[in-house]
C-alpha cells in the first residue's frame, strides 16, 4: 500500500485517556498520592498508517500504549477500535478483540519466555484462540518466522540461543502470527544497535505493506520516528503537546518543547552552525506536575499565563495540532 492510498478512516480513536498509578504507603497501604503517567490524552490512528509517539523517558508514552491494549487498566477515558470501545469489553469479547491488537516490546531479552522454544512462543496466540489444527498452526508459525527473516529450524531453539535483533524479530513474529490489524510498537528498536535497528525497521515497514498493518510507534529517537511514521505526536509529562504530519512537524515545529527536541537531533555535517536549544533542569515529577502548562518551568518563552492556565490543543494549521499559548508566533 502506497502512502497516497492510505485511507482517512480512523482505525483507532483514543479519547481522554487517563492512567494514574496509586502510590501506597503506611501500615494500611493507603493511597497517599497518584502518579499521573498519562493525563487526558486524545488522538486517532488512521487505517494503514504509522503514528509515531515520541517523548522523553518517563513521559508516559509506553504507559499510554500498554493501557490502550488493556495490559494496564485505564483510570478513565475511551478507546475505540473499529468503533468498539475496548475499555468496556469483558471476558470473551475482550479475548476475541485481542487477536486484532498486538504489541512488540522494547526489551528483546525480557519479552520471550526463556523456558519455551520460540516456535511454541510464536504459536501461543494461535493455541489460545484455538485457530486451526496443530498442523495448520505449525505451518502458520513457520510461515511467520520466514516473514521476519528466520528459518524453520530456528523454531525449536530457545531464546538464549538468539541475538538481540533475532529475538526482536521473534517478538514481531509472535505478534504477527494472529494476523492483527493494529500493533503497538513499544520502542522496538531502542535496545538494538544501529545496524540492526534499520533491519528491524525495514521488516516492520515491509510487513505493514503486506498485511495492511496499522502501527502506533513509540520511540524516543526522532530519526527512527522520522523514518517510519506518517504522523507524529509529541508527548511531555503525560500530555500530547503537538501532533502533525511527519514532514510538517519536522519542518515547522510549533511547540517550544518539540523545537528543543528537534535541535538535539544530530546532523551529519560538522560545519553546520545551528541553534541548540538546551532545556534547563529535569523533567518534573509526574507525582506533582507543574500548574498550567506542564512545560512552563523549562520553557524559554514562558510568561505568567503559562503557569496559570493550561493551554488547550488547537489546530493552528490544517492537521497540525499544538497545545501552547504562544504557538502562533512560530507560524
Amino acid at each position: 500500500m502506497k502512502k497516497s492510498e492510505k485511507s482517512d478512516v480512523n482505525l483507532v480513536e483514543v479519547k481522554n485517556l487517563v492512567k494514574y498509578f496509586p502510590v501506597r504507603a503506611g501500615l494500611f497501604q493507603r493511597v497517599v498520592a497518584w502518579v499521573k503517567a498519562v493525563d487526558d490524552v486524545s488522538f486517532t490512528v488512521k487505517y494503514g498508517e504509522t503514528l509515531g509517539l515520541v517523548g522523553e523517558s518517563g513521559c508516559g508514552k509506553s504507559t499510554a500504549g500498554r493501557t490502550m491494549l488493556r495490559l494496564l487498566e485505564p483510570t478513565s477515558g475511551e478507546m475505540y477500535f473499529n468503533g468498539k470501545n475496548i475499555f468496556k469489553l469483558k471476558g470473551n469479547d475482550l479475548k476475541a478483540i485481542r487477536k486484532d491488537l498486538q504489541i512488540i516490546f522494547q526489551d528483546p531479552y525480557a519479552s520471550l519466555d526463556p523456558r519455551v522454544a520460540i516456535g511454541e512462543s510464536v504459536m501461543e496466540g494461535l493455541k489460545i484462540h484455538n485457530i486451526g489444527t496443530p498442523k495448520e498452526r505449525f505451518d502458520i508459525m513457520i510461515d511467520t518466522l520466514k516473514k521476519v527473516g528466520l528459518e524453520d529450524y530456528h523454531a525449536r531453539r530457545y531464546p538464549h540461543e538468539f541475538s538481540g535483533g533475532q529475538r526482536q524479530r521473534i517478538g514481531i513474529a509472535r505478534a504477527l502470527a494472529l494476523r492483527p490489524k493494529f500493533i503497538v510498537c513499544d520502542e522496538p528498536v531502542s535496545a538494538l544497535d544501529v545496524s540492526i535497528q534499520s533491519q528491524v525497521l525495514n521488516i516492520l515497514k515491509d510487513l505493514q505493506e503486506e498485511f495492511e498493518l496499522t502501527y502506533l510507534f513509540i520511540a524516543h529517537n526522532f530519526s527512527v520516528v522520522e523514518h517510519i511514521s506518517d504522523r507524529v505526536a509529541v508527548m511531555y509529562l503525560g500530555k500530547i503537546v503537538e501532533l502533525a504530519d511527519r514532514n510538517e512537524l519536522f519542518l515547522n515545529p510549533l511547540h517550544p518543547y518539540t523545537q528543543a527536541l528537534m535541535s538535539a537531533i544530530p546532523v551529519p555535517d560538522p560545519h553546520l552552525k545551528r541553534e541548540r536549544i538546551i532545556l534547563k533542569g529535569d523533567v518534573p515529577s509526574p507525582l506533582n506536575p507543574p500548574s498550567g502548562c506542564r512545560f512552563h518551568p523549562r520553557c524559554r518563552f514562558a510568561t505568567e499565563i503559562c503557569s496559570l492556565e493550561e493551554p488547550l490543543m488547537r489546530e493552528l494549521k490544517t492537521k497540525h495540532y499544538v497545545a501552547c499559548h504562544y504557538a502562533e508566533k512560530f507560524l
Binding site: R66, L69, K95, A96, D107, E124, H129, G171
Partner: peptide, 17 residues
Amino acid sequence: EMDYVSATRALGGSNFQ
C-alpha cells in the same frame, strides 16, 4: 512484571494460562 507475561496477556491468555 516480565514482558513475556504481558505478551501472553496481549495474545488473550487467561489468568490461569
